[in-house]
């Protein structure tokens, strides 16, 4: 039996892992949706085929992340979700529309297909924007003044750009020909947008959040944590150069943009974690205060220890099955 302190740490880490995996995995799904062309059905088909076998499992990481918050930190779960009541509703409706459009666009009447394509794109944009918007409000401690809302909108746009970036990087990896060249172009645009987004959010955050400022700039380990933003920004520059090269040689290092954008996601995520740890609700509740009963969390931990490695193993299996350039999806 583990004590409450270790359990807080374990469950907070698991929740962080689930959120990070969600952002990367559903991030590329939503990114592909954001980038979906409305005037080129063949490309739209290929793009959606590239995420078809994965999106459902990817979205499950969100259920796990929210589930872990609900299970381990129920007080934080209800405080955060009540503060974000309407944005959560809008995001969920976005996810519903995106999720069902996947199937309806393929099975509904031909004349309705372009409507479902548009709904797929709109659902993806709404979900991505609302996730960023909620992240912004979270960073601003759920205040509702003009400054906080402006910051949240900025953050929403930033997340749309970031998802478009990783979505385009995924397409570079999975597609060929003209679509791949398009993806390289989209990736370049969204890299630059995400770059400015990250800089803006990182600059504004410590200015308006005093505790975040202290955490970063008056810390003893300033030199240890400095590499996080430095490497992150360097990776953006590197990515931009690689994309430039890919334009002329689209076969060399196709996996690099996806790898680099994943690392950027990881670094940004660590930056946010470092800014707020050990708070789970900024300024109000730490992971050590909000914990559910240790006997319940120990009971679930047996499952976690056995099942999470299994999940990672069969996820890897699934990616291996669908390895390589995308082929038209068929049920056969």
């Amino acid at each position: 039996m583990l004590d409450a302190h270790s359990l807080s740490f374990i469950y907070a880490s698991l929740m962080a892992l689930a959120i990070l995996l969600y952002a990367i995995l559903d991030g590329y799904d939503l990114g592909v949706g954001i980038l979906l062309p409305t005037d080129d059905e063949a490309h739209a088909d290929t793009m959606i085929a590239s995420i078809g076998p994965f999106w459902d499992a990817n979205e499950t990481w969100l259920v796990l992340a929210v589930g872990l918050a609900l299970i381990a930190f129920p007080l934080a779960h209800s405080m955060i979700l009540q503060a974000l009541y309407l944005p959560v509703t809008v995001m969920l409706i976005g996810l519903i529309i995106r999720g069902v459009a996947f199937d309806f666009r393929a099975k509904a009447k031909t004349k309705r297909k372009s409507m479902w394509n548009k709904l797929f794109k709109i659902g993806s944009i709404i979900s991505a924007f609302m996730q960023g918007y909620m992240l912004g409000l979270y960073v601003m401690s759920f205040e509702t003044n003009v400054l906080a809302i402006t910051f949240a909108v900025l953050s929403g746009v930033g997340v749309v750009a970031a998802y478009a970036l990783i979505g385009a990087a995924w397409l570079i990896l999975k597609t060929e020909g003209k679509l791949q060249l398009d993806a390289i172009r989209w990736c370049q645009v969204s890299t630059r947008m995400a770059f400015f987004g990250v800089i803006a959010v990182s600059a504004v955050n410590p200015v308006i959040n005093h505790s975040v400022y202290e955490r970063w700039f008056t810390s003893d380990i300033f030199l240890l944590i400095l590499p996080i933003p430095v490497i992150c920004l360097a990776l953006f520059v590197l990515l931009d150069r690689i994309l430039g090269q890919l334009k002329s040689q689209p076969d060399v290092g196709v996996w690099l943009p996806f790898l680099i954008s994943s690392v950027i996601f990881v670094l940004c995520f660590f930056g946010i974690l470092y800014s707020f740890y050990p708070y789970v609700v900024p300024g109000k509740l730490t992971i050590f205060e909000a914990l559910a009963a240790p006997e319940s969390l120990n009971f679930l931990l047996y499952g976690v220890i056995v099942v999470v490695p299994t999940i990672l193993a069969y996820t890897a299996f699934s990616y291996r099955v669908f390895w390589g350039k995308v082929q038209p999806l068929s049920y056969y």
Partner: peptide, 30 residues
Amino acid sequence: GNIAGPLLGYEVLTAFFMEATFLGVMLFGM
């Protein structure tokens, strides 16, 4: 929550991921 949490947690861990991942193989992997 001390009762409901773990039961929901086991549902996500043992059922949701498994269904969702193998659904991809089942639908498109023939």
